[in-house]
Simulated assay, not measured.
Amino acid sequence: MKKYLLLGFALFIASLNLRPAINSIAPLLDNMRDSLGMNASVASLLTSIPVLCMGLFSPIAAKMSGKWGIERVLGWSLLVIGIGTVLRFFTQSVSFLLLTAFIAGVGIATAGPLLPGFIKRHYSKHVPSMIAVYTVALTLGAALSSGFAGGLQKGLNSWQGALGIWALIAFVAVLLWWLIVMRHHAPAVQQPSAGTKSSLPWTNKKAWMLTLTFGLMAMLFYSFTAWLPQIIQGMGYSKSYAANALTIFVVVQIPVSLILPFLLRKFPSRRLWLTIEASLELIGLIMLALSFEPMMAAVFIGLGAGGLFSLNLLLPLDATDNPQEAAGWSAMTQSVGYVIGALGPIILGWIHDVTNSFSSAIAGLIVINLAMIVVQIAATSVKKKQQSNNKPVLVSK
Rank of each mutant, 00 (worst) to 15 (best):
L46N: 06
N312I: 10
F214N: 01
V106K: 08
N389W: 13
K384F: 00
L115I: 14
M32A: 15
A371N: 00
D30R: 14
N369I: 04
G37S: 09
L370V: 15
L144Q: 08
V42S: 07
L176I: 13
F249I: 03
K3H: 06
S310M: 15
V174N: 10
G307F: 07
A289W: 12
I254H: 07
W177Y: 09
S359Q: 14
S240K: 12
K120S: 06
L98M: 10
L87E: 02
L263C: 14
A379T: 11
C53R: 01
H352V: 06
Q233K: 15
S291Y: 09
S35T: 14
V181G: 06
S279T: 15
L74S: 12
S335R: 08
F57S: 04
C53H: 01
L282Q: 09
V73P: 02
K384D: 07
P268F: 09
S291W: 04
S310N: 11
N31G: 15
L78D: 04
V133Q: 02
I165K: 09
I81T: 09
K206L: 14
R271G: 09
I165E: 05
I283T: 14
T203L: 12
N39Y: 08
L317R: 02
P116D: 04
A132Y: 04
S145P: 01
W68S: 11
S158H: 09
F221R: 03
I13C: 08
I276H: 11
N312Y: 03
Q233V: 11
W177F: 07
L52E: 00
L348C: 10
H185Y: 14
T380I: 06
P316L: 07
A342H: 03
N312F: 12
G161I: 11
R271S: 13
S41G: 13
